[in-house]
Write a protein that binds this DNA or RNA. Structure first.
Lengths: 248, 248
DNA sequence: GCGTTCGCTTGATCCATGTCAACCATAAAT
DNA sequence: ATTTATGGTTGACATGGATCAAGCGAACGC
């Protein structure tokens, strides 16, 4: 029994426009590997597609968890707050990536998700995702992979925070961004940062001054050109070398 | 069609002895919340129960992934190795916890799992786990929670590495261990460390000398008594205060 | 157009932790 | 019992990044 809105062509159009099946991110997002028919089932499940204005929260730590979110467009950060006021950015998320996986554990979100630019998200009610993934094996398996990938990513960040020095961290960060922009069809060598130096620093376990100095140093050495948030990578291999060549 | 070993009482006995249904860790492990009947299905799935001697690898980074492992007894560490030789301990795992979740993502293990004492593990073939969790909703949901909990844990470590200083990190580490030992019915105030100062340091992003000095300092201040690997916590609140009270 | 604000850069100084080195304790090997 | 190896402690010193402080540039509101 397909849902229709015979009295409102607008709504129908908007639904079609934002369906997973038409979304050019589907190969990066949850639908990866699904057949057309399965895609439709997933589409029916996505309850809400919503705009989040820059600076607004998608969810806050402590709120009840009931859905995970796929980013349709835009850019987010997640951060964790400690009682004593310290906070840390735990990640930056871009189109096609999922937000909210941390909430499954306790049924409450454990971090804040904040839009760093005007964004659009698709809300996927988690209980329905579990139902559907019992039916669609591909979806089940892919969802598991996505969660696992998040764990692997976190290990990478732990590595970075635990063993790398400031410039290595920043080089790794830039290369990671570049790679993710590339996967989305953008230039690998030129992009705008959506986050401040302070947010980068928080993510990398550094102070904003240190981030700024490292940017300047990279520029002096010809690895990149920086102008505020505009980054051009001039020498990828230089950055890669920076990441690894280190006196242990 | 139940599997039996009519010709070999030994085997039957050993299987019974190590079944999930008889395992006193089942409330900490994957079987949480399952009915007796479901437990039996899970039991049938666990393909291997294996001993791992201290120092031996359960799996190595790069190996094909096909099972996750539940720790039946013992103690493990996982670590990640970078090309340039740097490595980092990404976690310490004890009885009832799962190992290998990181391998789902790429179908290859991304870290090494090494026994820190003689241990026993249950191997759970992942494809069969996916099949079974399509049938047993409770299992499916709990598995998702376990993965999510791992993500939350990793965020905690990122917080620790990114914002805490040496003594705060060590205090957090000790309190975490204490809490996990308690959950397993051991003393919360007295335990033996299974890992070296170097391994603790690697996990906490510190050098072994710094770890050693922090232990000594805690002892001087009366928070703990240390003698090599034997730890007694004398003042839990002292440690908690150490973790939070900090001039930002 | 002009001030105000916010984010960024740069310099000077300080300090927590790393590094290097010596020594000690425990356990295993002979 | 003695040697050897491994892990732990402690001290002296070096240093990377934090902190404090000043100034600059771009964006925004008026």
């Amino acid at each position: 029994m397909p849902q229709t809105h015979p009295l409102n062509q607008e709504v129908t159009l908007s639904v079609i426009k934002t369906a997973c099946s038409n979304c050019n991110l589907r190969e990066l997002c949850l639908p990866l590997g699904l057949t057309l028919e399965e895609l439709e089932q997933l589409d029916n499940m996505v309850s809400t597609r919503r705009r989040i204005k820059r600076g607004d929260h998608l969810y806050r730590a402590g709120e009840a968890f009931d859905a995970i979110y796929a980013i349709r467009s835009g850019f987010f950060k997640t951060d964790v707050l400690l009682e004593d006021g310290r906070d840390q950015v735990t990640g930056f998320q871009m189109a096609g990536e999922l937000l909210g996986l941390d909430g499954i554990s306790t049924e409450h979100h454990t971090c804040n998700a904040i839009a760093l630019e005007d964004s659009e998200i698709c809300a996927i009610p988690f209980s329905r995702l579990e139902v559907l993934s019992r039916e669609i094996h591909t979806l089940q398996h892919h969802f598991h992979k996505v969660m696992s990938r998040e764990i692997v990513r976190d290990h990478g960040v732990m590595m970075l925070l635990g063993t790398m020095r400031a410039e290595e961290r920043l080089a790794a960060f830039l290369l990671n961004l570049s790679q993710r922009f590339t996967a989305r069809g953008f230039s690998h060598a030129e992009f705008y940062l959506r986050m401040t130096r302070e947010e980068i620093g928080s993510y990398l376990g550094l102070k904003l001054e240190t981030v700024s100095r490292a940017f300047s140093r990279f520029q002096e050495e010809g690895h990149i050109a920086v102008q505020q948030k505009h980054i051009r990578i001039l020498n990828v291999n230089g950055l890669k070398a920076l990441m690894h060549h280190r006196a242990v």
